[in-house]
Design a protein around this nucleic acid. Structure first.
Length: 279
DNA sequence: TGGTATGTTCCAAA
DNA sequence: TTTTGGAACATACC
């Protein structure tokens, strides 16, 4: 279930394999995941060369020689495999690109949430995305201005792809832990010092994870090592690396959320009696 | 068996 | 208008 560091790792790994290669054929056994539809995408992809492979947020961008674009979003369980010809089909195989030199790119996706989109207007998908957190536009000043005008809770805001593109549940929790900010703080309540800490934490956590090839928690995403360096996510009941208080699990915006209850102090509103909520 | 899952989107309600 | 909650998507794992 890839977030920015996992998608970045995938793009770096597959770029030298696919760029410059010409697609001989494209087939899909799960046509509902192929947009606008499988016959059209197949016809468009046949005999096209891939000129570039890039990332924007959690999207993987194939630039084709006819200036069309193929966007792949892995969502919860999508992954790629590369092989000439496998002795048997990999599990949950949904689509295959065959290249003229007999190599193949396999798209596997247990949950079928992933999307393969052929378009001449990639901005329809990409323009709504927010700032690239590792790009030059994402400065502490930008973050301060952006937070000031929003009343949303910090964690759901960090997960909003139209705000910052690429953070998911793991790295939102890790960044908030690193910045010592409670996920229920409202965006506009941060002090300038806290904004700087959050900005630094987001970039630090993402860069570090890319260095470790992302986080591997199950069979879906292999060969990452960042899981050995997570400080909050998935560490419920274990001691906080800073103060030894037990990491606890909350539910925020329907997502599991890991915090150190000592390092990440709740906002006053979260400690008020919430039991008065019914009429 | 039931609860959970690293994501996104749509709708209703506040 | 902005924000939040809940359901939906489809499947595997513990």
């Amino acid at each position: 279930m890839p977030e920015l560091p996992e998608v970045e790792t995938i793009v770096r790994r597959f770029r030298p394999l696919v760029v410059g290669r010409r697609i001989a054929d494209f087939t899909a056994t799960s046509p509902g995941q192929v947009l606008p539809n499988l016959p059209r995408v197949r016809a468009h992809l046949r005999s096209r060369r891939i000129d570039a492979l890039e990332r924007r947020g959690k999207y993987i961008i194939f630039s084709l020689e006819d200036h069309a674009t193929l966007l792949v979003h892995l969502r919860m369980s999508g992954r790629f495999e590369w092989a000439a010809e496998l002795p048997e089909e990999p599990p949950h195989l949904r689509a295959v690109w065959s290249f003229q030199d007999n190599n193949r790119l396999y798209f596997c996706d247990a949950r079928k949430f992933g999307r393969i989109i052929h378009t001449r207007e990639p901005d329809t998908c990409l323009a709504p995305l927010g700032v690239e957190p590792l790009g030059p536009e994402f400065s502490a000043r930008w973050l301060a201005d952006a937070l000031q005008s929003r009343k949303r809770l910090l964690k759901p805001l960090l997960l909003d792809q139209t705000f910052i593109a690429g953070l998911g549940n793991i790295y939102a929790d890790e960044a908030l832990f690193s910045a010592k900010l409670h996920p229920l703080r409202s965006a506009h309540s941060l002090t300038p010092r806290e904004v700087v800490a959050l900005h630094r934490a987001i970039r630090h956590v993402l860069r570090k994870s890319i260095r470790y090839d992302g986080t591997t928690l199950d069979w879906i995403y292999p060969r990452g090592r960042m899981q050995e360096h997570l400080k909050a996510y998935g560490r419920k009941g274990q001691p906080c690396p800073r103060c030894r208080t037990e990491i606890t699990l909350l539910r925020v915006a329907q997502r599991s959320t890991h915090i150190c209850p000592n390092c990440q102090q709740p906002p006053p509103s979260a400690t008020e009696n919430p039991a008065r909520s019914h009429p």
